[in-house]
Computed example of a mutant assay.
Amino acid sequence: MNPEERQHQGQSSFPVADFHCDALSKMVEEPAIRFEDDPRLDVTAERLLAGGVHLQCFAIYLSEKWGKPRFEQVLSQIEKFRGKVVGKGGLRPLRWREETAELTKRPSNGPGWGMLSLEGADGLEGNLFYAELIFELGVRFLGLTWNYANWAADGVLEKRNAGFTEKGRELVKWCNDSGMLLDVSHLSESGFWELAELSKRPFIASHSNARSIFAHPRNLTDDQIRAIIGMDGRMGLTFVPYFVTDRKEVVPEDLLRHIEHVCALGGEKHLMLGSDFDGIDSWIKGLGHPGHYPAFAELLLRHYSEESVKGWLYGNAVSYLTSNLPREPGVK
């Protein structure tokens, strides 16, 4: 059976975990969007099933178009996740380490899992009580910045390239103590290295590629990649075309150079996926939504071992979660 046939039958050779999409902000902007199968979304319940996606991480992204970030905007996206993704969409929320044992047991036609991340601490408004509240509501990853400066730290496009504020360092300490995991994909380089000293837990870069292959500031330097490898963190290969190459038409084969470079640095067991579906307005040809994952898996298998491919698609992400998600209170 070829990849296209598998896709139409809702089947995939391998399970997939994707650590970044922006479907929630789209559903806030257009309340009539149906998560189940709406063509205005890249990520839908139907496409997750077709692509064999067992785990999808949903980012809470506060668009610059919405004005000053406010905590109520964070809550509105958590509400969309609960009502449309978990409720009508049928996904199960992943919050605790104990739940990771169930990740690989999903039947081919059954519901997958969804996780919540916050892309930028801006909407917490400098209030650690708000951080505690979103943790209680199921958010498990915190991207400290978007591209620019906020109350906690500088983003990767902030020209001064500073690190953390005093309040930002308090936030990191709270994350270490509570079990909230950290994401550096939008963090400044100075902030990255400061966090490497501050954090007691391995962090991730949910959606970044290799800067040595393509010099975009959102991609990671070799030293940053080595640091993530050294702490047993994870790096999510992303499908943003202009993070991959500057060619006009980007194809899935262009991602292979990034994969090979990360592996050459020792990161075979640390590479995962962070598509950025629904956060982009141009797509890699043939890799425009989760339903295309079976064909991408077939491409990878033509070049790499089955063990490596399974790790990149799913296993490396799950092993990180199994080791680092917080334990459910009261469960031994």
Score class of each variant (00 low, 15 high):
residue 253 E to V: 09
residue 285 K to S: 14
residue 262 V to M: 09
residue 262 V to H: 04
residue 235 M to C: 12
residue 248 K to W: 11
residue 225 I to N: 02
residue 264 A to W: 11
residue 261 H to G: 06
residue 253 E to S: 12
residue 239 F to K: 04
residue 213 I to F: 01
residue 282 S to P: 05
residue 280 I to Y: 04
residue 243 F to C: 02
residue 260 E to M: 09
residue 227 A to K: 14
residue 238 T to A: 05
residue 259 I to V: 15
residue 279 G to Q: 07
residue 236 G to E: 06
residue 282 S to K: 15
residue 249 E to M: 11
residue 245 T to Y: 02
residue 235 M to D: 00
residue 276 D to R: 03
residue 250 V to M: 03
residue 264 A to H: 12
residue 283 W to K: 15
residue 251 V to N: 05
residue 284 I to R: 03
residue 229 I to C: 05
residue 246 D to T: 09
residue 219 N to V: 08
residue 285 K to Y: 11
residue 271 L to N: 05
residue 272 M to F: 11
residue 266 G to A: 09
residue 266 G to Y: 09
residue 255 L to P: 00
residue 254 D to G: 07
residue 231 M to C: 14
residue 274 G to K: 03
residue 254 D to E: 11
residue 280 I to Q: 08
residue 247 R to K: 15
residue 271 L to K: 04
residue 253 E to D: 14
residue 257 R to D: 15
residue 270 H to R: 11
residue 243 F to I: 02
residue 239 F to Y: 10
residue 285 K to W: 09
residue 238 T to Y: 03
residue 225 I to K: 05
residue 242 Y to L: 13
residue 216 H to R: 04
residue 246 D to P: 10
residue 263 C to P: 02
residue 229 I to E: 02
residue 273 L to G: 01
residue 272 M to H: 03
residue 247 R to L: 13
residue 243 F to Y: 14
residue 264 A to C: 10
residue 249 E to V: 15
residue 216 H to L: 06
residue 252 P to N: 08
residue 276 D to L: 08
residue 280 I to T: 13
residue 234 R to Q: 10
residue 223 D to C: 08
residue 275 S to N: 07
